[in-house]
Design a protein around this nucleic acid. Structure first.
Lengths: 202, 202
DNA sequence: CTCCTACCTATACATATGTTTACTTATGAA
DNA sequence: TTCATAAGTAAACATATGTATAGGTAGGAG
């Protein structure tokens, strides 16, 4: 269904590289020269096939109006909204410290954000003080997954376990005791799940 | 030094928006139509000024060869070149598995790359099996920093200590003994320094 | 074999697009 | 005032670029 011949692949790759280098697409004759073809027709054929097969999008009759369909538009800007364990008005736009690019593979969902970790409470999960965690907002997590939880006005990152009517927040550090809450407690809400960790070493 | 008139600003903004929408730049006549000008000359003037002032880069005589100079190009594509602790021909282009976007702040140097960590030898440095480490190529590291070292044809990630003529590679895991090498050993080379860690949790 | 597709050459043709010359109008600085 | 610059009109001109017609060769599927 999405087969591609070797030659078409070569052409597609050249187009990708060209755009990468020039920030604009090659003309048909640019491609022709590169492959040392004697006619523009061959190139046109290749492009038409690549468009048919969905690898390219183009505007007909327009110069250099060629766009490579990227399976995954690989980069997304994710806001860093603050530090956990400080009074944290989550997702308040005024609090965005920075935007960090992240692979779209890692940030498929809308509304994801980064939090900076404060303290060593998750040290056994290999999350250190100062690390950034990528959070996907969702109202639940699987048993034992690492979650961002809001308790009143504060946010915290903990490993979450659910029993009957009880929820336990475990630090991955033997020095800290678990927090225990009950479903009736309206002040506790799961904000989202930690889906990645990013640490800078210098 | 980088003044811009209101009109020029309008033109620049239109160009930005157009590229954003189409993935290719507008032609002079596209711009002309949008501003309802009666001649292409005015547009050409604007573009020439914008190029002079450094807001645009363009290739003369080429259709739609217009590039907006972005102050903060915050994202860089970094190649993931393989897994450490497997026989690893470092930086061989054929081995690039993927490209991951990284904040330009983290990847100021050229030639940086990602490695996937295999094994638990750096567990006490909070680097786990499967984590990706961002590497800046350099022939030295400070005492105790985490480095990528090539031993023969294999690469490994270790904490590096240097004494007189001796180099020790420490795993951050009490179960592994340090490797010891000597300067005379030509088979051992520091590839670079680990500057960041990236982990995906799902 | 026949038919289809991938791939290519050769040669035009149409038009999209960049470039230029000549002139106008308005504004602000010297 | 005079001069420079921004901004624009008008009309061509040159060429970069997309498109089309008419073929040819090779290989695989039926």
């Amino acid at each position: 269904m999405r087969k591609i011949t070797d030659r078409q692949k070569q052409v597609l790759e050249y187009i990708c590289d060209f755009i990468d280098e020039h920030a604009y697409a090659p003309s048909i004759r640019d491609i022709q020269k590169h492959f040392e073809l004697k006619s523009t027709k061959g190139v046109k054929d290749h492009i038409d096939r690549l468009v048919e097969k969905g690898f390219l999008i183009r505007t007909e009759g327009t110069a250099r109006a060629l766009k490579v369909v990227r399976e995954n538009d690989t980069s997304r800007k994710i806001p860093l909204v603050g530090t956990v364990a400080a009074g944290l008005p989550l997702l308040a736009e005024e609090n965005i410290e920075d935007y960090l690019p992240v692979s779209a593979d890692m940030a498929r969902t809308d509304g994801m954000f980064f939090l900076r970790i404060n303290g060593d409470s998750m040290i056994n999960a290999a999350i250190l003080d100062g690390d950034l965690v990528l959070v996907r907002p969702q109202p639940f997590v699987e048993q034992g997954e690492i979650a961002v939880v809001r308790i009143g006005d504060e946010a915290t990152v903990k490993r979450l376990f659910r029993f009957n009517t009880r929820v336990e927040l475990h630090s991955d550090n033997p020095n800290y005791k678990p927090f225990v809450f009950f479903d009736s407690d309206e002040d506790v809400r799961i904000v989202g799940k930690v889906t990645a960790v990013l640490r800078t070493l210098e």
